[in-house]
Computed example of a mutant assay.
Amino acid sequence: MLTLPSEYAEAVLDIVERIPPGRVMTYGMIAEILRDHLGRGSARTVGTVMSRYGGGVPWHRVVASNGRLPPGHETEAHARLLSEAVPFRGEHVVVAVARWWPEDNTPA
């Protein structure tokens, strides 16, 4: 039986869909927005949502707070982010340069 995403999962995916090419958000940044608007959320929960439902959104634009790429998908994410001119230091995204925050700070 197919499990449909919850309201929280839908909100995560809406935010990730809005991240522009060449920019990234961290799991924690997404969780912060959702805590402000839904009253709950954690970086770990965002990661779980991304692993279950993130295939249809630009998943490669969501990274750990230290710039580490999505576990198990490092090679593909690295290639995609390089093609978008995202800056790297070694194998990690330079989050301070590439981070993006929605102007209206709300889930879609």
Score class of each variant (00 low, 15 high):
Met1Lys: 07
Leu2Tyr: 10
Thr3Asn: 08
Thr3Ser: 10
Thr3Arg: 08
Ser6Lys: 13
Glu7Ala: 15
Tyr8Arg: 05
Ala9Ser: 14
Ala9Lys: 13
Ala9Thr: 01
Ala11Gln: 01
Ala11Val: 00
Leu13Gly: 02
Asp14Ile: 01
Asp14Leu: 13
Asp14Met: 10
Val16Gly: 02
Val16Leu: 06
Glu17Lys: 14
Glu17Trp: 05
Pro20Gln: 09
Pro20Asp: 04
Pro21Val: 13
Pro21Ser: 12
Gly22Phe: 02
Gly22Arg: 02
Arg23Tyr: 06
Arg23Trp: 05
Arg23Pro: 10
Val24Cys: 04
Val24Gly: 01
Val24Ile: 07
Met25Ile: 12
Met25Gln: 03
Gly28Arg: 06
Gly28Glu: 15
Ala31Arg: 02
Glu32Ile: 03
Glu32Cys: 12
Ile33Gly: 00
Ile33Phe: 02
Leu34Met: 10
Leu34Glu: 05
Arg35Asp: 10
Arg35Pro: 14
His37Thr: 13
Gly39Ile: 03
Gly39Tyr: 09
Arg40Tyr: 07
Gly41Asp: 05
Ser42Ala: 11
Arg44Thr: 12
Arg44Pro: 00
Val46Lys: 00
Val46Thr: 06
Gly47Phe: 07
Thr48Cys: 00
Val49Leu: 01
Arg52His: 11
Tyr53Asp: 09
Gly54Val: 08
Gly55Val: 14
Gly55Ala: 15
Gly56Glu: 12
Pro58Arg: 03
Pro58Val: 13
Trp59Lys: 07
Trp59Cys: 09
His60Lys: 07
His60Gln: 07
Arg61Ala: 05
Val62Cys: 13
Val63Ser: 07
Val63Phe: 04
Ala64Ile: 00
Ala64His: 15
Ala64Arg: 09
Ser65Met: 11
Ser65Cys: 05
Asn66Asp: 15
Asn66Pro: 04
Asn66Thr: 01
Gly67Asn: 01
Gly67Ile: 00
Gly67Trp: 01
Pro70Gln: 11
Pro71Ala: 15
His73Cys: 01
His73Ala: 11
Glu74Phe: 06
Thr75Tyr: 12
Glu76Ile: 13
Ala77Ser: 09
His78Ile: 04
Arg80Ala: 02
Leu82Phe: 05
Ser83His: 05
Ser83Asn: 06
Ala85Leu: 04
Ala85Cys: 10
Val86Met: 11
Val86Ile: 09
Val86Trp: 03
Pro87Tyr: 11
Phe88Asn: 07
Phe88His: 02
Phe88Gly: 02
Arg89Cys: 03
Gly90Ser: 08
Glu91Val: 00
His92Ala: 14
His92Val: 08
His92Thr: 14
Val93Lys: 00
Val94Phe: 09
Ala96Phe: 14
Ala96Gly: 03
Ala96Asn: 15
Val97Asn: 03
Ala98Phe: 11
Arg99Met: 07
Trp100Ser: 12
Trp101Lys: 14
Trp101Pro: 01
Trp101Gln: 15
Pro102Gln: 11
Glu103Leu: 12
Asp104Glu: 12
Asp104Thr: 13
Asp104Pro: 00
Asp104Gln: 12
Asn105Gln: 12
Ala108Phe: 12
